[in-house]
Amino acid sequence: KKSYVLIKVKNPKTKETHTIVVPEENLEEVLKALASQPNVKVVDIERFP
């Protein structure tokens, strides 16, 4: 059974918020990819039960 993680990201320029759902096993690479985006800020990470 896969567990999923909900990542909320915000664009500081446009103030838009997006929610991305990723499998927990991919969380680290997704966070690394997001960290390299200049106008993306991770605001929240939630685990799915």
Rank of each mutant, 00 (worst) to 15 (best):
E29V: 13
K10F: 15
I7G: 00
E16M: 04
K10D: 06
Y4T: 03
N39H: 10
K10W: 15
V43N: 02
V42I: 11
K13N: 13
V21C: 07
E28W: 07
P49R: 03
A35H: 11
Q37A: 05
E46H: 12
L34F: 06
I45C: 06
K2L: 11
R47I: 10
S3V: 11
V5D: 00
D44F: 13
E29N: 12
E24L: 09
R47E: 07
L31Y: 02
V42S: 01
V22M: 03
E25W: 06
D44T: 13
V21S: 05
T14A: 03
K10N: 13
K2V: 15
V43W: 02
Y4D: 02
N26C: 12
K41R: 11
H18D: 04
E28K: 09
I20F: 15
K13S: 12
K2F: 13
Q37D: 14
V43S: 03
E46R: 12
V5P: 00
E24A: 08
K10P: 00
L27Q: 02
L31V: 03
K15S: 13
E24R: 06
S36N: 11
Y4L: 05
V5G: 01
V21D: 01
V40P: 01
I45Q: 02
E24D: 06
S36C: 07
I45T: 03
V22D: 00
E28F: 10
E46I: 13
I45W: 10
H18Q: 06
S36R: 10
R47N: 05
N11M: 04
N39T: 07
V43L: 08
N39S: 07
Y4S: 03
K1I: 13
K15E: 14
K8Y: 08
P49I: 09
L6R: 14
L34K: 00
V21Y: 11
V43D: 03
R47M: 08
V42K: 01
L34P: 00
E29G: 08
E24S: 07
I20K: 02
L27E: 02
E24Y: 09
V22Y: 02
I7N: 00
I20Q: 02
P38H: 07
E16I: 05
V30G: 01
N11T: 03
V22E: 01
F48K: 05
F48C: 14
P23H: 09
V43Y: 04
A33M: 11
E29P: 05
V40E: 03
P38Q: 08
K41H: 14
V9Y: 15
P49H: 08
P38C: 05
A33G: 08
N11L: 04
K13Q: 15
A33H: 14
